[in-house]
């Protein structure tokens, strides 16, 4: 029996016991997506226990090889996501002891990979999911551009693809929450609209003085991301880049792109003018000599 059907069963039993207990589910998700609000995940690292159930769920949901979560020695080194593991949990030694941090695509509001892609293979969906499509050329500029080094390329394939977390875009269309969120036993991951998540994050910070670092990682970083993090320690102790800046990465190439139409219009005109002027000059000289 898989977890989902089990939970449904438990739900039914519980409903029988408690009378009219209904599980709200996420049936509202699609209608909300049309409102144009971004969805995302809030990761509360104070709650993460490093069980790596999210890694297993991610693999199950996306048809990736299942990781062996009984191997605790993996925590000895910081792992990066790979083309076959879209989410990884790392452990960090901090001033407040061991803290576990799940890492995956941040789903930036104005994603660098999306801005970099020349065929819109990387796409920011209306509900915030950054997904990849097969019309990609495999140029890997998305990997060069991503401030979080998330897109991974299948180098060892003749028909390679870019692999990364999709925020469970397909499940979202079926009104389901992401696999990792569903699997998390302590609700260190919660799923909702970015606005709700920020509210909840601020509520936790405010209601638990001294527990949280007041910074919500992802609220401003790289112009804001759909993936948000709460932590009890400064984020540089958890392997986060704190020099990402608050500017959306797509802004960095904007200056150049704005210059393009000017060059395109002005250059030919100037050069044509120069060419004519010099030609005229030459004629005058030759006429003068004649």
């Amino acid at each position: 029996m898989d977890r989902r059907s089990f939970l449904q069963m438990i739900g039914a039993t519980a409903a029988g016991v408690a009378g009219s207990l209904t599980a709200p589910g996420v049936s509202h998700a699609r209608s909300k997506a049309e409102s144009g609000e971004f969805y995302g995940i809030l990761v509360d690292t104070t709650r993460c226990i490093g069980c790596r159930n999210c890694e297993v769920a991610c693999a199950e949901v996306n048809g990736l090889p299942l990781p062996d979560i009984s191997d605790k020695s993996l925590f000895a080194s910081e792992r990066q996501t790979t083309e076959t593991q879209w989410t990884v949990v790392n452990r960090y030694e901090t001033e407040k002891g061991k803290i576990y941090v799940p890492k995956r695509c941040m789903h930036c509001n104005q994603a660098a990979c999306v801005a970099a892609c020349l065929v819109k293979a990387m796409k920011k969906r209306k509900a915030g999911h950054v997904t990849w499509d097969t019309n990609c050329l495999g140029c890997r500029l998305c990997m060069v551009s991503c401030p979080f080094d998330i897109p991974k390329f299948e180098y060892n394939s003749a028909l390679p693809e870019i692999q990364k977390c999709t925020l469970c875009w397909e499940r979202f269309q079926e009104d389901k929450i992401p696999g990792c969120v569903e699997a998390c036993p302590t609700e260190a991951l919660i799923f909702g609209t970015r606005r709700q998540l920020l509210e909840e994050a601020r509520r936790r910070i405010y209601q638990n003085p001294g527990v949280y670092n007041s910074h919500i990682y992802g609220e401003q970083e790289a112009g804001g991301t759909s993936h948000l993090y709460l932590s009890s320690v400064p984020f540089d102790q958890l392997g986060f880049r704190t020099d990402i800046g608050n500017t959306a990465y797509s802004e960095y190439s904007k200056g150049f792109l704005y210059a393009v139409p000017f060059v395109f219009v002005l250059w030919p005109v100037i050069m044509l003018g120069m060419s004519r002027a010099i030609k005229g000059e030459e004629k005058e000289i030759s006429e003068g000599q004649a």
């Binding site: 739900g11 408690a18 207990l21 589910g25």
Partner: peptide, 14 residues
Amino acid sequence: RSCHTIDFNPEDLG
């Protein structure tokens, strides 16, 4: 479980 639902509820994140 009178308060805590079986399924994740995105409407009540707290």
